[in-house]
């Protein structure tokens, strides 16, 4: 069995973000971290590989040059077998182009499962897995909080509005990881050493036979939303009730 997992770097959402001069993306000198949901996808792939024989795991990262380093440190050092880096300008790709790049990689690699994050925490689109599944004509199980393989099916518990849904999808399929799927492990020192020798293939978008490399959605302007002003501290419950009744008129 072969599993393709995602390894996307994102600018740390907790850091102070500076909008670039052209207003279309953020400016350099930001901290980058592995997209949290990709960490869950990687962990899930590793657990599957550990629970049965003959599983090969391959991490895919698309983006600026530094992405290759993230594939090595965030995926290969944790135990993923090898990596594929696809070079792309991060400010000029949308989820649709990412999905088509993944489709190109799937045609080369022919995996049984594509396991990726439910959302990228920079663009917050929550689309790639679903788009990819439709491009491939595969079933999907999004927002997974539990994944079990049984024969040629994946039984997946999904976190949906109103509760938990369980669906069974037949392989090959796309699964998108939610945060409660698992606790991602840290890379061990031995893992980091081993990762240095693991294969990491570098590709251009042109190598993947896409019809075109145009995004369908373009960011025209980014801005900082007007913040909320801090209010007042009240000294006790009585004052809180007085404010809510008198000033705010909400209770």
């Amino acid at each position: 069995m072969k599993i393709l997992v995602s390894a996307k770097r994102v600018s740390d959402p907790n850091a102070r973000l500076q909008v670039a001069k052209d207003g279309k993306w953020i400016e350099g000198d930001v901290e980058y971290v592995m997209n949290y949901f990709c960490e869950n996808a990687i962990e899930c792939a590793l657990q599957i590989a550990e629970s049965q024989d003959g599983v090969e795991t391959v991490a895919v990262g698309i983006g600026d040059e530094d992405t290759a380093r993230f594939i090595r440190q965030g995926a290969l050092a944790r135990g993923i077998d090898r990596g594929i880096y696809v070079a792309a300008e991060e400010s000029e790709i949308d989820s649709d182009l990412i999905a088509r790049i993944y489709e190109g990689v799937v045609h080369r690699e022919r995996p049984d499962i594509v396991l990726i994050g439910k959302q990228a925490v920079d663009g917050d689109s929550n689309q790639v897995g679903q788009l990819l599944a439709e491009y491939l004509g595969w079933p999907q199980a999004t927002f997974a909080s539990k994944v079990e393989l049984q024969g040629d099916e994946a039984i997946v518990t999904r976190e949906v509005d109103g509760g938990l849904e369980v669906i069974a999808v037949s392989l090959p399929c796309v699964i998108t990881a939610d945060l409660r799927l698992n606790e991602p492990r840290y890379a061990s020192l031995a893992g980091i050493m081993k990762a240095k020798k693991k294969p990491l293939e570098e590709l251009e978008i042109d190598d993947l036979d896409l019809d075109d490399a145009d995004p369908k959605v373009k960011v025209v302007a980014l801005s900082t939303p007007s913040g909320r002003k801090a209010g007042v501290l009240v000294k006790d419950v009585d004052e809180l009730i007085a404010k809510l009744r008198g000033e705010a008129r909400v209770v």
């Binding site: 917050d124 995004p215 369908k216 960011v219 025209v220 980014l222 900082t224």
Partner: peptide, 19 residues
């Protein structure tokens, strides 16, 4: 265009869909 939150709402993006 359409306005949407990004980076957990720390930024908002104005985007256009070209199709």
């Amino acid at each position: 265009g359409l306005r949407r939150p990004m980076w957990a709402g720390n930024l908002v993006g104005d985007v256009i869909i070209t199709t």
